[in-house]
Nucleic acid binder design. Structure first.
Lengths: 361, 361
DNA sequence: GCGTCGCCTCGAAACGATTCGAGGCGCCGG
DNA sequence: CCGGCGCCTCGAATCGTTTCGAGGCGACGC
């Protein structure tokens, strides 16, 4: 039923009465060929049902697969629930697509087994010209190791810099410091912090100094540092992932504690959005009773008309820059680090602390 | 700086003092080989920095790329904002990954140009063993045409059945009818409908019979039909995409109209969630003043503690079934259609219509 | 009329691996 | 001691394309 084997360029050439190399020219257009010959070849191809050169042959010849492996985050499902990842990916796909490159999705963690050194088998076996690690690399990153072992060049987004690998990073420490300073300037002294995951352990809850010292993710480390550039948070609550429900859980705990903070700074807008929901659920006014600030600059339609105070980062541009870094790498350019700026954006979720909150203490 | 060309299996074999075929056996393990010989080959590989067989060579030989092209929806960025797509994709990636297959992301519409017959160039050029059209195909689908022209077999999710192509479909007509019947049973007579896009035109707003006749997407057509199996909606509002903000816009219009409906049925949970937000913004109680029902069975943390009345569909399973269909296709099995069940799930957003809304009319 | 220049076309050599059948060598049994 | 049987190893063919240099042939200029 599957019909005879798919016709090959050689058969087309044979039928058209030309050599294989000439037939190749007819399709690729790379080289001089007379219009009549080309037509004859194309007609022969049509008659045989030949639909163009087999990519596999071309790839072997050129040594390039045209495929860029992209490691998004830990689990695919969870990562894509974060609009941040989605927007970056969109920018990346567009930029690479314009250069004829495709994106192969690689789950960061294969099973449900974080902290294992097992990586997705695709990293070992799939044909890839470049690997992109969008969300940084840890101190001892199995994924990075696997790419390097295979000799696949990598591009790093937001991570520890890797020698020889281009990187796209963010001014997030400065941005975080700015938004927290904004809270300080408003008069806040008891600022609680909802943190991104410190590593891939899946831990959550309030953290102590010892745990803080274990931080193994660059964006998290930068934002932790940024917060501390402006204020010493009364408590830091680690989350399992940057998702609304985790921000909500964290804020419910923080806001129910005896010495309630007057402001919460979250490492991401999704976490901050969850914190706003928690405040509402507890009957607290934002920013009357508690101010909330985030990071990312997402558009959260379900939070409207509330507008988060946040730090805007150029998400699509981050994806585009990553794409350009990939292109540059393939073109043999020297790797460089691109640092993206951020911008404080004051919304309706921050204001001066309430008087009574001080007396309540 | 790039070092000498990457070593090849032939050089490893040479160094180990064995033939290329034996060296191949040492890596693939497919065939008898003595432990000593294998060790010698592996040692030679190590010394040369050979990191395993080049996938490109293997692929050409086997005629398989191990890559499955997945067309998600219209625009990548927009599609991934919908958890429905994300969950299906997750199931698909997991299932394919377990069989050593990788997912290549293909934007449904290349530029910002819907209704054009241009498809993403990847479909024409990238090496793929199978193509998956997750969200169905239209009457004259350029993407489907492109795959078929190239001779790449396809798997269809939720779409018009294509001869020879396996499909994974949904009992969505029945499910939709059930949830609307639930509204009818509660006593609702004026039911408004918020519809998924009828085609890729990007149109939005109330639709008339002529427009309804133009529907060119299977899931949309099924749900429109399902609604009508139970009631004749007072108005149908078409949206541009299944996103919260579009549901909200639609509901704001529907609920501000003079003869306000007592219930709204949306074709998706995201649209329904937006409708709930709209009701709240207008000061309407749900379900006191208006009932809202959706479709999908999503977990919407930002809507808590409200729980949507909806029709639950097995999203991850849909992805898994699509994956299995791909595997089956590659194994040469006869294509078949898998139909997934749905289940009505009553939440807190539906109740009997208020007395006064009738008098208001 | 002959030389030279161009435009096309062609053959052959990669690209890097897998696979299949043939065959060598050692060991065991008769 | 010889025949036969296994276990390994090898050589060669194959996958489908691109590319490079060579060469043929016609035309134009001197």
């Amino acid at each position: 039923m599957a019909g005879p084997a798919r016709p090959t360029l050689a058969r087309v050439a044979e039928r058209a009465g030309v050599s294989v190399s000439t037939a190749s020219l007819a399709f690729s257009g790379a080289g001089p060929i007379s219009p009549e010959t080309r037509d004859r070849v194309l007609r022969a191809a049509d008659e045989l049902g030949y639909t163009g050169p087999n990519p596999l042959g071309r790839q072997l010849r050129s040594g390039r697969s045209g495929i860029v492996g992209v490691v998004i985050g830990d689990q695919l499902k969870r990562s894509f629930r974060d609009p941040v990842a989605v927007q970056v990916l969109d920018g990346l796909v567009s930029t690479l697509g314009a250069h004829g490159l495709g994106v192969l999705l690689i789950p960061g963690i294969p099973g449900h087994d974080p902290a294992s050194r097992v990586v997705d088998p695709l990293i070992e076996t799939a044909a890839m010209d470049v690997g992109v690690l969008v969300w940084g690399v840890g101190r001892q990153d199995p994924t990075l190791d696997a790419f390097q072992r295979r000799g696949v060049p990598v591009v790093i987004g937001e991570g520890r810099l890797v020698p020889g690998a281009p990187a796209v990073t963010l001014d997030d420490r400065v941005g975080t410091a700015q938004v927290v300073q904004h809270l300080v300037d408003l008069g806040h002294e008891r600022v609680a912090e909802i943190s991104l995951p410190l590593d891939s352990s899946g831990a959550q809850g309030p953290v102590d100094a010892a745990r803080l010292a274990q931080v193994d993710r660059t964006p998290t480390a930068n934002r932790l540092a940024g917060v501390r550039d402006a204020v010493d948070p009364v408590v830091t609550w680690e989350t399992e992932a940057s998702l609304v429900e985790h921000g909500k859980t964290a804020a419910l705990a923080l806001l129910s504690a005896p010495d309630r903070p007057t402001a919460i700074v979250a490492h991401s807008d999704l976490l901050a959005g969850g914190a706003v929901l928690a405040a509402h659920e507890l009957g607290l006014d934002v920013p009357g009773d508690v101010s909330v600030a985030g990071f990312d600059g997402l558009d959260l339609p379900w939070l409207a008309p509330t507008v988060l105070t946040t730090v805007r980062q150029p998400l699509a541009e981050k994806g585009e820059r990553l794409g350009e870094a990939v292109i540059g790498l393939l073109a043999g350019e020297a790797p460089e680090e691109v640092r993206l700026p951020v911008e404080l954006s004051v919304g309706t979720t921050t204001g001066p602390p309430a008087r009574q909150s001080r007396t309540t203490a």
